[in-house]
Design a protein around this nucleic acid. Structure first.
Length: 445
RNA sequence: GCCCCCAUCGUCUAGCGGUCUAGGACGUCGCCCUCUCACGGCGAAAACAGGGGUUCGAGUCCCCUUGGGGGCGCCA
C-alpha cells in the first residue's frame, strides 16, 4: 500500500518553524516510504484566511524544497462535506443546537468557577420537537454538533505509543456553524478519507482532536489512518514557542539570509536521537529519517543553532550552489572569491562585506607607515597569484626585519582595513596590484 | 480549575533491572596547526530534578513533589 501523508496549514498567517517541522516530517516520511505528499490548505475560516498567506505558504515550501505531489483546498470541497454531514445526520450522530456563543461562554466560565471541566452539557439533545420549532420560529438557526460516544478511544500512536482519549470528558464538537459554514473538524476527516491518507503526522497539540476524529472516521464507515504526534517545540529558555513566532517565520529567516537547508537540517533532527548536523540536501535527511527516533519530550529550538548550522553549511558549499545567490547580492569574483571567503561568513549576505573589501573603495588602516611603504615598493609587477603573498611577505620581511604578527597584521590592516578575515594568500590576488599599491600608500581605493 | 504527556551533560539524545566509575553529537574550554579569524587534528570539563518505595541490585519499575509541555472554542 502506498503511503499518503499531508501537511495541512491554514492560510491565516505566515509559516513558522513549528509548521515547517510538521511539513518536513511529512515530506521526509513520504519520500522515505515512496509515498505521496499532499499539501492541503485548511481555509475553512474565511475571515482569517487570505490569498496572500496562501501564496506565502507556496513560496516558503518551494524555497525549502518541500514539493508536494497532491494539492487541495478545503474551500473548494464543500459538496463533499455536505454529503458527509448528511450521512452523520442519517446515523444520528449530528444534532442541532441553539445556544449562542455568549451563552456557551458563560456556561464555560461557570463550570470553570466550580472547578469542573468546561464541557458542553448537551442540553440541545433533550430539546423537544416543540421547543425546536419554537426556537426556529423565533428565527434561531442551529449549529450542528457531532455526538461523541462517551467511550474511550484508543489508538496506537507511532511516536507516543498507546493513547487513550476519554470522549466523555470532551464537548461534542461543533461541525457546522450557525451560518452553514464548516469548521475544520469534519473537512479534515473527509479529506483524509477522500485522499486516502494513511498516516497523520502532526504536533501533539492534536492528540485530543484525534479522539473525536477517530469517532468521525468510524461514524463515516472509513478506515482509521495511523497517527504519529510529535512533541512541540519550545524556545531556548523553555517558553512556549508561540510567544515568539513572529521572529521565527520562514519569510523572516529567509530575509535574514538563512539557507533553506540549514532550516531543514535543524528541524528534521531536533527532538530525535540523530545528531544535528548540516545536510546539504533533503535526500540525505530522507536517508536516516525514522519516526521511531522522535522523542516524546518537548524540544528546545534556539535560533542561534540555526546560525551555527548555516555557517557550517556555507563552509562546505561549492561555488555552483551559491553562484546565483551571490549574483543577487551583487557580488562578483566567481569561485576564487567564494573559496576565499566562505569560511569567514555565517550568512551568505555577509559575502557582500568581503566583496566590498576587494572592490573598494575602502579607507586603509596604516599602523606602520614605513613598513607599508617598504611593502609597497616590493610589490611584484606581474599579475598576482596564489604564491604572491608568500613571496612578497618574505621579501618584505627580509628587507625590514619584521616578522610574525608585526609583519602580517599591519599588512592585513592596510590591505583590508580589518584585523582579521579570510586568508590573505587568497585575498591578495583578488585585490590586485593597483588597489594594493594605493592602499599601502594610505589612499582610499 | 480539570484531564493528558514529559523529565539523563548548556543543547539534542543513547540507556528498555546488573555489562553505567552513564555513551554519542552540537556547543564550551585547552593544546597543536597557523599571519588573524575560521577550518582541521588531539584532549578536557560537563548530566541521571528532589523525596519515598519495590528489589540481592534502579538512570532503568511504582508513588508523591517540583518543573516543563499540551488540551479543555461556532480556531486550526
Amino acid at each position: 500500500m502506498t503511503t499518503v501523508v499531508r501537511f495541512a496549514p491554514s492560510p491565516t498567517g505566515k509559516l513558522h518553524v513549528g509548521n515547517i517541522r510538521a511539513a518536513l516530517t511529512n515530506y521526509l516520511f513520504a519520500r522515505k516510504t515512496g509515498g505521496k505528499f499532499l499539501l492541503r490548505l485548511d481555509d475553512t475560516d474565511i475571515e482569517r484566511s487570505t490569498e496572500e498567506n496562501a501564496q506565502g505558504i507556496h513560496t516558503d515550501l518551494a524555497w525549502l524544497g518541500l514539493t508536494h505531489d497532491l494539492f487541495a483546498k478545503q474551500s473548494e470541497r464543500t459538496a463533499a462535506y455536505e454529503a458527509a454531514a448528511d450521512k452523520l445526520r442519517t446515523v444520528g450522530r449530528l444534532y442541532p443546537a441553539y445556544e449562542t456563543p455568549d451563552e456557551l461562554e458563560r456556561r464555560r466560565k461557570r463550570q470553570l468557577a466550580q472547578h469542573k471541566p468546561p464541557v458542553y452539557d448537551r442540553a440541545a439533545l433533550s430539546l423537544t420537537p416543540e421547543q425546536r420549532a419554537d426556537l426556529e420560529a423565533k428565527g434561531r438557526k442551529p449549529h450542528w454538533r457531532f455526538k461523541l460516544s462517551g467511550k474511550s478511544v484508543e489508538f496506537n500512536d507511532i511516536i507516543r505509543g498507546s493513547v487513550h482519549i476519554e470522549t466523555a470528558s470532551l464537548s461534542d464538537p461543533v461541525l457546522i456553524r450557525e451560518d452553514g459554514r464548516f469548521l475544520y473538524t469534519l473537512p479534515s476527516v473527509v479529506d483524509d478519507i477522500d485522499f486516502a491518507i494513511t498516516h497523520i503526522i502532526r504536533g501533539e497539540d492534536h492528540v485530543t482532536n484525534t479522539g473525536v476524529q477517530v469517532e468521525i472516521f468510524e461514524a463515516l464507515g472509513a478506515p482509521i489512518p495511523a497517527f504519529a504526534h510529535f512533541s512541540m517545540l519550545v524556545g531556548a529558555g523553555g517558553e512556549a514557542l508561540s510567544k515568539r513566532l513572529g521572529s521565527l517565520s520562514i519569510e523572516g529567516l529567509r530575509e535574514e539570509g538563512i539557507e533553506p537547508q540549514a532550516i531543514n537540517s535543524l528541524l528534521a533532527k531536533l527532538g530525535t536521537s540523530d545528531p544535528v548536523v548540516p545536510r546539504a540536501t533533503l535526500d540525505e535527511l530522507v536517508a536516516d529519517f525514522d519516526l521511531a527516533k522522535f522523542s516524546r519530550a518537548p524540544a528546545h529550538f534556539d535560533p542561534n543553532d540555526l546560525k551555527a548550522i548555516n555557517h557550517k553549511l556555507l563552509h562546505a558549499m561549492p561555488y555552483d550552489a551559491v553562484a546565483s545567490g551571490l549574483s543577487r547580492l551583487g557580488v562578483g569574483g566567481g569561485a576564487p572569491f567564494w573559496e576565499a571567503v566562505r569560511d569567514n561568513i555565517q550568512l551568505l549576505n555577509e559575502a557582500r562585506g568581503w566583496w566590498h573589501v576587494i572592490e573598494g573603495p575602502l579607507e586603509p588602516v596604516i599602523e606602520d607607515a614605513s613598513l607599508a611603504e617598504s611593502a609597497r615598493a616590493l610589490l611584484p609587477n606581474g599579475p598576482f597569484t596564489d604564491a604572491t603573498w608568500n613571496e612578497w611577505t618574505s621579501a618584505v620581511s627580509a628587507k625590514t626585519g619584521a616578522k610574525g604578527k608585526a609583519l602580517f597584521r599591519p599588512l592585513r590592516l592596510a590591505l583590508t582595513g580589518q584585523p582579521h578575515g579570510p586568508e590573505m594568500r587568497k585575498l591578495l590576488p583578488l585585490i590586485g596590484p593597483e588597489r594594493a599599491a594605493k592602499r599601502l600608500a594610505g589612499q582610499a581605493a
